[in-house]
Amino acid sequence: MKKLVAAALAIGLAAPLASVAAGAADIPHYPIKDPPRLSWSFAGPFGTWDKGQLQRGLKVYTEVCSGCHSLNMVAFRNLTDLGYSEDQVKGFAASHQVTDGPNDQGEMFKRQGKPNDYFPAPFANTEAAAYANGGAAPPDFSTIAKARAVESGFPGFVFDIFTMYTTKGPDYVHALLTGYQDPPKGMRVPQGGYYNPYFHSAAFLKMPPPLSDGVVKYDDGTPETVDQYAKDIAAFQMWAAEPHMVERKETGFVVIIFLAIFTVLIYYTKKAIYSRLDDH
């Protein structure tokens, strides 16, 4: 009986594997290469933000990415999470011009940013963003670290549960930013396209390589390399997408410990109650 079940299970598991192998030839699979898995300070059950890294990520965003990519759902006031003081946040906000209004004459006007304002978008709307960028609107950064995930496949997706692998997004971003390379021989690169085997939905993307060594100055002695920039911006994006992550994990730890104790208590209570049945 057990053997039969085991055999059935084996067949059941083998069939999809075989089919994946067979199916791979039909449509090209993207991304061409899976992103390497990096170790992040915020990964795992006790992960916390590396605030220095987030500050560097903010710098990369402000100096490089913000020319094209919006960050619509993050407000300046949120930057206190990165270890900045209220006054630093005020100063940072004031260095941005935001649109406000209408004023008493019914017109919109520009003014200095305040902590309560959200990061101003580089383009007025998606259409303008697409028009200025060769037809592809640069995506918003607010949730992008959660919106990009490369499937682990079978059986990887099962193992991911136990290894608590939740950094698909940052891994992807880092791989993409460091993954620009010459296309393989014979591949025709379309006009305005850049080959990147890590891009999630095609072999080419419209975004030119945005980073190069030394383009952003770090004042904490961190190496000014593309690899480091990519890590920092990916971490920053993860924070932007999930600002309560650390709080969530800390709460989770207390909840799990409580439930574990509660379960043990119930287990012994149940044993005690059921022991009365043995008299029958």
Binding site: L259, I261, F262, L265, Y268, A272
Partner: peptide, 19 residues
Amino acid sequence: RRDFLYLATGMAGVVGAAS
């Protein structure tokens, strides 16, 4: 000991529900 166990379990349940 058994009464204590029942009490502890009940209390834990109350604390859990309140939290």
